[in-house]
Design a protein around this nucleic acid. Structure first.
Lengths: 341, 341
DNA sequence: AAAATTTATGTAATCGGTTACATTTTTAAA
DNA sequence: TTTAAAAATGTAACCGATTACATAAATTTT
């Protein structure tokens, strides 16, 4: 119940009959302290079970050595890879990270941003939630000159540095691949076009159609959230079309998987009747049948890039203001769901 | 580059020509401050863009109002549901949480524990990583009387409160279900039996066999980590058996899915040749073919229960020492992968 | 109107570190 | 041996809040 009193540098100093200044220096391994005294101090610290007080320290030095990471979800391969990348770089650089997730709610995102701000992170890494439409809730960071880098889900016109893949190109590739497989009526299942990733992929889709002389047909565009129901509903919409499409480009593997299952339940052959391409390269893609063609992009690399840039900026090595957009590679992974003989 | 100086209560006090004590009280909405002064102070705080300094506050009151959450992974439905449950309860109670994940490495787990300890969380919620074999790295918490609750992945003989499902019962149910489907040679794919969840499920498996007069056959027990390769390897082992099993109980949906895919690639019919039951009710189960029979357990509830217990303890409402094990319900969800006509 | 209460505000110590500057001790140079 | 320089340690202010206790102002009671 009762928390025991903590050991402080005062306790160590007293026991050893030296000043707290020396203790403080020794614990930071300051070369100015003699090896002999240092040893005594370390030993005593160990013996008493001393732990330094972050709060006192941060209060004094006005720096937390902590980076906030704000993501829109946690349960995807992509995000966990990104986190792994960020962690790798930040731990090496001696920074802590605090992970917060908004669960695709911009309200929660705002609350988290506020919280991280109050926790005084030195910098912020963020991927916007589904329905975030402005950067209002990051204003506090901007005002105080706390660096913020966005990745993947970003605001188009942001002043901040962003790390993304070339979503338009990826969308183009996916669509072109379907066209190369002989598809001429290609549906596109995606989400809010206000979000950069979806609008860019959509642009790529349209560009590919255009370049191959296929007119864009609005009725083949299906927009929804990324839930299971959405996948089912998308399949229903497809099935209701007067003329069935022969290809579908879906901007999310999970939705693609759900959609595919529903289509199959209705006797649609994949890829013969309808070829399907997803997006993200989630684990699921290799397990469903037929295996899902998708766009892969390296989460871990992305995380490392984001973190490295932020930390370099914090250390004054580089200036974020100079780099504005960093593009990470992405690749089309062809599997059975889209390959027609 | 340069972080601007922060506004403190001193700035507000100076501007308003009142004492910092009054400002401090007003900002906490202390009823002792007159409404008039309070308004002035709030307005000025707003105007100057004041934000309270957590570090100064925590240093002074020796309390962080923060709970650490240490999980073994992030990308599973189960864990994210648990987190959602924990978050719901903690935010309501005015606590912050810090999420750390060990990525199934007990080394990282120890590092995270240390970090959370230094961040002075008021309490800790943890699910052990795969290869954690002792609670040594939580000693600091125990010593300082900081409450720790474990959930799901726990140490059997721990003194701490644990929140789990009845893994033995679930294992029994899963196995019994296979037996009821007519299986008599049931393989069991699982992971390190040192980890409570797996040893308990194994116990349930053996008990079910015993109760139905099926002798336990050691050669039908396959133990591995929970990777994709493990799933493939498990399938290979099964295929190599002199007599094919007619049922498999796999303690992880992902591994089950991989295993199933590999079996199917080798012309094994599921469930006719081999019936399969997984564990966890991950999203994947409903998408693969045939859909996977599995054990479902309510992550969100579990999270809420864990958090509620911890917070009640912190608030002194209840004492954790009294409750030692809390069992959460779990259910068998029957899908096609195990149903034989 | 004076005294007694009640209400509002102020003073100053405290939390546990960091660090500029001062002082003491040790070592090297004259 | 004395002096100068270098190395080690100490003193005290500071970071920004909280709060026990003291004091002042407003209100009520006699």
């Amino acid at each position: 119940m009762q928390k025991e009193k903590d050991i402080t540098i005062y306790d160590i100093a007293e026991k050893l009959n030296i000043s707290i200044a020396t203790v403080s220096r020794a614990l930071k391994d300051d070369p100015v302290v003699s090896k002999k005294t240092k040893k005594k101090i370390f030993d005593m610290a160990e013996e008493l079970g001393y732990r330094s007080n972050h709060f006192a320290r941060n209060l004094r030095i006005q720096q937390t050595n902590t980076i906030g990471v704000l993501v829109h979800e946690l349960n995807s391969n992509f995000i966990t890879s990104v986190l792994a990348g960020i962690e790798k770089v930040t731990t090496e650089a001696g920074y802590d990270i605090i992970i917060a997730h908004s669960n695709e709610s911009s309200l929660k995102e705002a609350a988290n941003a506020k919280n991280l701000f109050h926790k005084r992170v030195d910098g912020l890494i963020a991927s916007l939630s589904f329905d975030t439409s402005n950067l209002e809730h990051f204003k506090a960071f901007f005002d105080k000159n706390i660096p913020v880098i966005f990745f993947d889900r970003v605001e188009q016109d942001s002043e901040s540095t962003v790390v993304v893949i070339d979503n338009a190109k990826a969308g183009y590739q996916a669509t072109q691949h379907l066209i190369e497989q002989g598809c001429t009526r290609i549906a596109h299942v995606t989400s809010s076009l206000k979000r950069n990733v979806y609008s860019q992929r959509f642009k790529g889709y349209k560009d590919a159609l255009y370049d191959h002389n296929i007119p864009f047909d609005e009725s083949l565009l299906i927009i929804n959230d990324l839930s299971e129901e959405a996948g089912i509903e998308a399949a229903r919409q497809i099935l209701k079309m007067k003329r069935l499409p022969d290809g579908v480009f879906i901007t999310n593997d999970f939705v693609a998987a759900v959609c595919m299952r529903t289509l199959k339940e209705h006797e649609v052959n994949i890829p013969e009747d309808i070829a399907i391409v997803g997006f993200n390269n989630d684990a699921i893609g290799k397990l469903i049948e037929p295996a899902l063609t998708t766009i892969d992009y390296p989460g871990q690399d992305m995380g490392e890039i984001v973190a490295t840039n932020l930390i370099n900026h914090l250390k004054g090595v580089s200036n974020l203001r100079q780099t504005n957009t960093i593009i990470v590679r992405s690749d089309l992974i062809v599997r059975k769901s889209s390959v027609r003989k």
